[in-house]
Write a protein that binds this DNA or RNA. Structure first.
Lengths: 242, 242
DNA sequence: CGGAAAATTGAGTACTCTCAACCAGCGTGG
DNA sequence: CCACGCTGGTTGAGAGTACTCAATTTTCCG
């Protein structure tokens, strides 16, 4: 991937929901960034540590996570290529949660200050970035609902639908009902507030019901309508976001 | 409350975490707003409806909420006086959740466009507003963790701690361990993803253990340290916010 | 090819839910 | 001023979803 196109996915993403002029685009693409690669499970952000960079996920998957006192882990969101994984820490001095790679990841790191200055000077960009974080928030809210008021089958169905919808929105070429699924069952459990064992059994009932096929990291949604209905999935909360 | 001081709580709140100049303050206080009062349970924002105003809670309590298909309700956050309840909808065309009054509320309504224009012209204000929504997000994340990975006792303890900490931070004069508690048991249940019955029983064990006293809408935290420990409460995620 | 990680299965447990009844406080109206 | 009705709180019993622990199989990766 050449230099020029490295920040392109980002720009495309912002373009979708905000109005950015040619100068805005120039300014965004002029941001100084550093390319880095990370292995599975590497930390991109650590709770308690001061934040200084913003990390754009160029390829791969990442997730947000917090640990509770007994050591249990709750995953708070999944991030796909083209998304900033830590805009949420934009103005916060100290990270309040962890961000980890789900797969191998290539990222572009931008100094937080550069981004904040860019926002101060270009209000369209500021708006685009704010919007990005607002959509993240909306997803957090839906996750509160998911783990708070749905049963195991619904939670997992909802999660599968969300990922499919976002992947599809990010790349309309892709087939949202058939994609490389980056989560282990234990991670699905941590997304949904379940145990790995119960997640396993619940996935089996989804398979038995002919809703999905999931093996060796490949997910096929066999009956989107029914899966979405079971998961009470309404994509309004994604705000046509990636 | 006279005109001049109506937006004051807001300004004080933003002042705490952002740097605003005298001109910024003038611009904020010059925002056109309309005072309105609402009764208990009134809707301030309705899911699915276009958003056009931003609502500052001047007095009273409000909450965010979403309904699932079976009709169950999940409360996503509580808001106290001095907070904007729907900045989260700032750039979103259509609300993705409901906001309701928990008690009688007095609010100041500001046209969304006025706020967005203010942000475009004053980058300090934009930053303050963004920060506000980022802190909201952080609270959402903690709630995902709370309902996802804690048991009933922990969830309720955490909720009580959070409210106390925020009230205290909003008004350092107040005694955070003894405050008017605005939630019914059914609402506590909807915050924590439990049923009202189980919430009742869990509150009883908290009382029996000498941790709290709660009756007729008055909460006293008898042993803050132990309650915070049980609830796995670490206020970092509040970012010293109100 | 071998070891580790991930997925699967079984059995027993327990936390939380459901349903249903009952009590208590309080505002309203006769 | 008391009765009524409503909302919110409390209790009991039984059911069920999800958990724990532990063993086993399968898959993945070096």
């Amino acid at each position: 991937m050449d230099e020029a196109s490295f920040l392109d996915p980002l720009f495309r993403r912002w373009q979708r929901t905000a109005t950015l002029s040619r100068e805005d685009k120039r300014a965004v693409l002029a941001l100084p960034w550093a390319r880095r690669a990370f292995g599975r499970d590497s930390y991109l952000v650590r709770e308690g540590e001061p934040t200084s960079v913003c990390t754009l996920l160029v390829s791969g998957f990442a997730f947000r996570q917090k640990l509770v006192s007994e050591g249990a882990r709750q995953i708070i969101s999944i991030h796909i290529a083209g998304e900033f994984v830590d805009l949420q820490n934009g103005l916060l001095e100290v990270a309040d949660h962890n961000v980890q790679c789900l797969t191998r990841c290539v990222v572009a790191m931008v100094q937080k200050n550069a981004l904040i200055e860019l926002m101060a000077s270009r209000d369209n960009v500021a708006r685009a970035i704010w919007l990005d974080t607002l959509i993240d928030s909306s997803i957090f809210r839906e996750w509160v609902v998911n783990v708070g008021r749905r049963d195991a089958k619904q939670r997992i169905a909802h999660l599968l639908c969300e990922l499919a919808a976002r992947l599809n929105s990010a790349d309309p070429q892709s087939d949202g009902s058939n994609y490389d699924f980056p989560l282990t069952q234990e991670q699905i459990a941590d997304c949904t507030g379940l145990t790995a064992v119960h997640t396993n059994r619940t996935l089996q009932t989804l398979r038995r019901d002919g809703l999905i096929s999931l093996s060796s990291s490949r997910l096929t949604i066999l009956d989107w309508d029914r899966l979405a209905e079971i998961g009470d999935f309404n994509e309004r909360y994604l705000h046509h976001a990636v």
